[in-house]
């Protein structure tokens, strides 16, 4: 096994009764990258992650994590990984510091507790009981617990669910920090934006199957979708002169709101110039680049729910 490959999954299969949760999924995760699995609810992300963590037994396929089988060498493996589960809990009356103290005792070399509390913004809550924490605070505690053993590989299943936007951005920085220390991150999310901004490589999964796997930039570039210029115009709008512009492919007037589709970034300059030279009064102009959401739509033919 290549030293640079941390996780190797080959034809992973998992069924629950008549539901095929994971269907012939294969991928590799390289050392030092943030690898994301993104897809809608029920796509099979958690199932895949938990097979890798050794919490579920696959029905078929082969998994290697650090060259070990999560199902057979679970004990040795769990010393080297950190896990944040999508659903789990602690005892209601367990205090934050006690949770870290307890989990630290499971590993040979736990990290410094107070520093970790600080890093997760939980210092003020160190004496609070788990049951009294808000959803986002619980989430931060679980992430702290996932890092308590200074793991080489961290699994984060829906890490920013329940966090406010500010905490979400802080969490992204934190995850980048983990990678910058040379560790590997496997995360799942159903936020396309999160996958796009955070992950080095993304596997898009839908209905148990991987439909695309690459860096977010390559996935978007390969889509070669239009850039869009969106603006609100006052008075009557005539699409004709805009359609004459070399890079414009489509114009969608929709009452006052207009969307112009075009091939390159040049289209923005062209559209603004045209608006000004024709004396239009316009406002709220912005551009929309194609994103992972568009990639998902193009590949699956349906929208991500929620």
């Amino acid at each position: 096994m290549n030293n640079n490959i941390v996780i190797k999954v080959d034809q992973l299969h998992k069924v629950y009764g008549s539901t095929v949760a994971v269907d012939a999924v294969s991928f590799e995760v390289r050392a030092g990258e943030i690898f994301g699995m993104v897809g809608p609810n029920g796509a099979g992300k958690t199932t895949t992650a938990e097979c890798l963590e050794g919490l579920r037994d696959p029905d078929g396929g082969a998994i290697q994590v650090f060259g070990m089988s999560p199902q057979k060498d679970g004990h040795a493996l769990r010393e080297r990984i950190g896990v944040q589960l999508q659903t789990s809990a602690l005892q209601e009356r367990l205090k934050v510091w006690e949770a870290l103290d307890l989990f630290g005792s499971f590993y040979p070399r736990p990290v410094e507790r107070e520093q970790l509390l600080e890093q997760m913004g939980l210092t003020e809550k160190r004496d609070a009981k788990f049951g009294k924490l808000s959803g986002g605070q619980k989430q931060r505690l679980f992430i702290a617990l996932a890092l308590i053993n200074d793991p080489d590989l961290v699994f984060l299943d829906e890490l920013t669910t329940g966090l406010d936007p500010q905490a979400r951005h802080a969490m992204w920085d934190m995850v980048r920090g983990i990678r910058d220390k040379g560790k590997t991150v496997f995360l799942t999310t159903h936020f396309m934006e999160e996958a796009e901004r955070l992950c080095d490589r993304v596997a898009i999964i839908d209905r148990g199957k991987i439909v695309a796997l690459d860096s977010p930039e390559s996935l978007i570039r390969r889509l070669s979708a239009d850039n869009r210029v969106v603006f609100t115009v006052e008075g009557k709008f005539d699409p004709q002169p805009f359609l004459q512009l070399p890079n414009v492919t489509r114009v969608e007037p929709n009452g006052e709101k207009v969307v112009v589709h075009g091939k390159t970034n040049q289209v923005v300059v062209d559209v603004v110039t045209m608006l000004v030279s024709n004396g239009y009064r316009f406002r709220d102009l912005r551009t929309e680049q194609p994103n992972l959401e568009d990639v998902f739509m193009a590949l699956t033919g349906h929208e991500m729910m929620d």
């Binding site: 963590e53 919490l55 004990h75 040795a76 769990r78 010393e79 896990v83 589960l85 659903t87 789990s88 809990a89 602690l90 005892q91 989990f103 499971f106 590993y107 679980f142 617990l145």
Partner: peptide, 14 residues
């Protein structure tokens, strides 16, 4: 039921 055992299971704890 609450998933406390699940979380513990993800550690090397016996």
């Amino acid at each position: 039921e609450r998933g406390i055992l699940r979380r513990l299971r993800a550690t090397p704890l016996h």
